[in-house]
Write a protein that binds this DNA or RNA. Structure first.
Length: 311
DNA sequence: AAGACGAAAGTGGTTGA
DNA sequence: TCAACAACTTTCGTCTT
């Protein structure tokens, strides 16, 4: 089972499958997984903690002082002041009649000004869209924040002009996933939004080009984590799949091959080797590749690995 | 009957002229 | 812009368990 970037999940919850309380939160895959049997309690969870961390009491005091953490997911970064509805001053005294009307007018204009110009309206709409998609995919908070920052950059550089806000928001989410190493495909994103896969891809390429982002290709290893979890396979299977992948890399069998196909094939071999057999179809469905691709990778691997496998 | 295998033709993306 | 190309998909018949 993966350990780096994973943390013991501090909870009294137990695995419904085996009853173990050894649950880990895998931030990379955004999942809560049982260490004992590999059961996925929450596939694609939402991170509910604050996005800042404190390392000592002093830091905590400093940060808590400011109230809610500043967030990029609300168009004014959540820092807006509102004039409340109770017609009382700071001392709790009621306003005199004349002042009441004045306060009412102030409140009205304040509300109007908050979402005033076109850019602000655009942001307000887009950021709610981002939240919607992230919620649909149950993505952790940091992805939401990252996507929001990316969208703000896009707006700032006037990149949204001429394309749909929803298209750009979907692309921003995808960029955020890639940047944070969370394996989510264009397909996943397009299913969680009203945008087609093609359009998300187009906006994505446009964004990384204009914003000069460098996105590392998704590693097959990230997909192994995802697939093994979704197939609820033992940690051991995942571990063996990783080892097979490592050998495959050394033998230069991975270059030019799709990472999903590679991950699917290694997961398949690992499942066969451990006796926890999954069918090619099952894996193909999760990995969104065809059985034929799994077979092709599998064939190449077995041909070259038969003398190197020492599992 | 389900799963695995593989051939053949088709598709979409990348690369280089 | 276009052709060549490799990877991948779809389809379908056959073999194996």
């Amino acid at each position: 089972m993966k350990t780096e970037n994973s943390s013991q999940f501090p909870t009294t919850r137990r695995c419904p499958e085996c009853g173990s309380n050894r649950l880990i939160k895998d931030n990379e895959c955004a999942e809560i997984v049982c260490m004992a049997c590999g059961y996925v309690l929450v596939a694609k969870m939402a991170d509910q903690g604050p996005e800042w961390r404190d390392f000592d009491a002093e830091q905590r005091a400093k940060r808590e002082r400011a109230g809610a953490p500043a967030t990029f997911t609300i168009h004014d970064k959540g820092l807006s002041t509102t004039i409340d509805r109770h017609d009382r001053d700071v001392h709790g005294k009621r306003f005199p009649q004349g002042q009441k009307a004045q306060i009412y007018r102030l409140r009205k204009w304040h509300r109007r000004i908050r979402v005033s110009n076109a850019t602000e309206r655009n942001l307000a709409f887009a950021l709610s869209e981002i939240s919607k998609i992230a919620n649909n995919l149950n993505l952790p908070r940091n992805i939401l924040e990252t996507a929001s920052v990316i969208y703000r950059k896009a707006v700032k550089q006037r990149l949204v002009r001429g394309r749909t806000i929803q298209g750009v928001t979907a692309a921003a989410i995808y960029v955020a996933c890639r940047q944070c190493g969370v394996a989510r495909s264009l397909e996943d994103i397009s299913q969680a939004s009203p945008i087609s896969k093609k359009e998300v891809g187009r906006s994505y390429r446009f964004l990384i080009k204009k914003l000069h982002f460098y996105i590392r290709p998704v590693k097959a290893g990230q997909y192994i984590n995802k697939f093994c979890n979704q197939l609820t396979m033992q940690g051991e299977v995942e571990d063996i799949a990783h080892r097979i992948l490592l050998v495959a890399k050394e033998l230069k069998l991975t270059s030019g091959r799709g990472p999903t196909g590679m991950a699917a094939a290694t997961s398949y071999i690992a499942s066969v080797l451990t006796g926890e057999r999954k069918t090619q179809r099952e894996i193909a469905e999760i990995a969104q590749v065809t059985e034929v691709t799994i077979r092709n990778r599998y064939k190449e691997l077995v041909e070259r690995l038969q003398f190197t496998i020492y599992l």
